[in-house]
Design a protein around this nucleic acid. Structure first.
Length: 301
DNA sequence: TCGTACTAGAGAGTAAAGAG
DNA sequence: CTCTTTACTCTCTAGTACGA
């Protein structure tokens, strides 16, 4: 007797409510007699299964028996389904099938009120493969090797013990860097030639630093946007940071994590933004703009 | 452990009888 | 003539006996 088939029979009964022995026999490619033996086994195991004869008859479970026996409250069941729904958004495995099965077990509709896609626009198979590889490295506790490009574009070969994948507007990997002998946070899009090594590792005693408490310096940024960038301003800043001016322009005051990235980000607005404060950022953007001007106008001057 | 052949129960369908 | 009731048949399905 196959235990797997017993589970699948219960799953089918939960999914469809009532199923005839002939249907189950056809599905599992066994005779109806075998199905009845399985039903008998389920009954002996305490599963409240019953059968009704005649037209529209069939084998069923006592309504809501799983829910009644479950130790989980309805809210907990919803939270589990919601968590699975979120994980499924990463599109990394058989989470969809699992979600469907658990929805049947809990006799609840899948919480299909959220759709998230953590991948970048245009990201393809390569990124998904890299993501899957990192996931298995974390779960199997295997050291990975990769080439990492820092913010300045310099590449360096690394060996690291991957600990956790984090999504904070982009995907990051928290790992113990073997060359630095410390925890580092790597942006996954900057990792190249990621590979699993044969080397496995044990969980380290040192606690994993919390990203929010890592001491990332925050600064106050005061910006002035031209009216033509209204759509980006509305998309990228919280409404409480934005104040519209009579001339149609927008003043934005926001806090930002320090780093060179902010210059590139501000330049992405082109001439549509003016940095009002702080002076240091204003000067850096100005310097970059002068560099751009030199690059494009040196032949004419 | 499984399949074939069979039995029995239950409901749907149908035709006939009866009442208004 | 129409509607309702009743009895019978058919079909579907659960369940059993027996053997490989």
């Amino acid at each position: 007797m196959q235990v797997g088939r017993l589970f699948d029979i219960v799953y089918q009964l939960l999914l469809h409510g009532s199923v005839t022995a002939a249907d189950l026999a056809e599905r599992f490619e066994v005779s109806t007699r075998t199905v009845y033996r399985d039903i008998e086994a389920l009954s002996e195991a305490g599963i409240p299964v019953y059968a009704s004869r005649g037209r529209n008859g069939g084998i069923s479970l006592i309504d809501r028996f799983v829910l009644d026996r479950s130790l989980l409250s309805e809210q907990e069941q919803d939270e589990i389904l919601f968590a699975l729904q979120s994980v499924r958004a990463a599109r990394t495995g058989r989470d969809g099938e699992l979600l469907s099965r658990l929805s049947s077990v809990f006799k609840r509709e899948s919480p299909d009120w959220i759709e998230a896609d953590f991948t970048d626009w245009g990201s393809g198979k390569e990124e998904k493969d890299r993501f899957a590889l990192l996931k298995s490295a974390v779960l199997q506790r295997r050291v990975i090797g990769f080439t990492y490009y820092n913010a300045k574009g310099e590449s360096r070969e690394r060996l690291a013990e991957p600990v956790k994948l984090i999504f904070k507007n982009s995907w990051y990997l928290q790992a113990f860097c073997l060359s630095r002998q410390d925890y580092r946070t790597f942006k996954i899009s900057r990792m190249e030639q990621v590979r699993l090594t044969e080397q496995s590792f044990e969980k380290r005693e040192a606690p994993l630093p919390d990203l929010d408490e890592k001491g990332i310096a925050m600064g106050e940024l005061s910006l002035l946007f031209s009216p033509r960038l209204a759509y980006r301003v509305r998309d990228e800043f919280h409404p409480s940071c934005i104040s519209a001016r009579p001339d149609g322009s927008f003043a934005v005051t926001t806090s930002y994590p320090a780093g060179d990235w902010i210059i590139g980000y501000l330049l992405s607005f082109g001439s549509g933004v003016t940095v009002l404060a702080p002076d240091a950022i204003r000067e850096q953007v100005q310097k970059e703009a002068e560099g751009i001007q030199r690059n494009y106008f040196k032949e004419k001057t």
